[in-house]
Simulated scan of single mutants.
Amino acid sequence: MAVMSSPAVATAPGAAPAKKSVNFANLGVGATMNMFEVTTLGQPFEVIKTHLAANRQDSMVTAFKKIYQRGGISGFYQGLIPWAWIEASTKGAVLIFAASEIEYVALGSGISPFAAGLLGGMGGGLAQAYTTMGFCTFMKTVEITRHKAVGDVAQKSTFAVASDIFKREGIRGINKGVNAVALRQCTNWGSRLGLARLAEESIHKLRGIDHSRALNTWEKIAASAVGGGLSIWNQPIEVIRVEMQSQLKTAGRPEKMTIANCARWIWQTNGLKGFYRGSVPRFGLGMWQTICMVAGGDALKKYVNDNYGKK
């Protein structure tokens, strides 16, 4: 997620919203916070979550052991370079731009700022998936789920794997599962932004804080953690996305997967509980991402604007 200031603000009750130009400093803030998030706790949570979603028979302990056996501590950072870094450094800009335009139009139609922000987050999530995230998310999953050579047997580089997939399946092959990614991002950002803002509103009411006063750092972190943690309600979509992009070969698994036949396959092999594999690490990932992007991002944005903004 990128940090978003309100991209469209109504100048007076009933007046058309005055559109603000894209703040390029905020684009840099979004990219910076995304890079920080994924390079610290983000990628380990992502690797554990993806492993459990793809290997639904494994326990959390087994997942830790297998990941560590693949490469020690570095095993928890598979897919970070270059795919997660490419994704993190680009998706924030797409989100801000798309959400800005959608929110401007939505406010102009007369709906509430909360609803406009919700629509902006959903639209921004869709834009992320279909522009920068589809390929990168697929390649991260490939790195985490593909067979790893052991001993003296050389294994292909990540770029060689991408090249092989492109030669076999073309552009569709390297964007496999992008529709599931889009559905995940749309629901992710709609719920994360909405629930975080709802949590902020609740803190104001519970503590009797005037709405004109901004929450302090710890209050913002708490609200962001609540919003990020509760956004795991769409975990079934994430499990379907991982299965569609997984490189694990299983007898009976459909060769050409759609969201529908992938969901049937998960149900047939693991039942209802299969759709919730990886929920625990994704809970941690959602909290960490939202804390970094909302609480941390707001703080960094304020610092940048105070020190380097127009005087």
Results as ranks from 00 to 15, higher is better:
49 K>N: 06
40 T>C: 15
36 F>R: 00
31 A>E: 03
23 N>S: 03
35 M>T: 14
7 P>C: 09
9 V>A: 11
6 S>F: 10
39 T>H: 12
5 S>Y: 04
18 A>Y: 07
20 K>M: 14
10 A>R: 03
21 S>A: 15
15 A>T: 11
4 M>F: 11
18 A>Q: 01
18 A>R: 15
15 A>G: 02
38 V>C: 12
39 T>W: 03
39 T>N: 12
25 A>S: 09
48 I>W: 02
5 S>I: 14
5 S>A: 13
32 T>D: 04
20 K>V: 08
28 G>L: 06
14 G>P: 05
40 T>D: 13
31 A>I: 06
14 G>A: 07
23 N>G: 06
27 L>Y: 02
11 T>L: 15
40 T>L: 10
24 F>Q: 08
17 P>K: 04
42 G>M: 05
35 M>Y: 05
45 F>D: 01
5 S>V: 08
41 L>C: 11
10 A>C: 15
12 A>P: 01
40 T>V: 15
25 A>M: 07
6 S>R: 09
21 S>I: 02
10 A>F: 03
30 G>H: 06
46 E>K: 14
31 A>F: 12
14 G>Y: 01
16 A>L: 12
31 A>M: 13
28 G>V: 05
45 F>T: 10
15 A>P: 02
32 T>Q: 02
16 A>D: 15
49 K>P: 01
35 M>S: 11
16 A>F: 10
38 V>E: 01
12 A>N: 12
28 G>C: 10
35 M>E: 03
19 K>F: 12
38 V>G: 13
29 V>E: 03
15 A>D: 13
18 A>T: 00
15 A>C: 14
45 F>G: 00
34 N>E: 07
13 P>W: 08
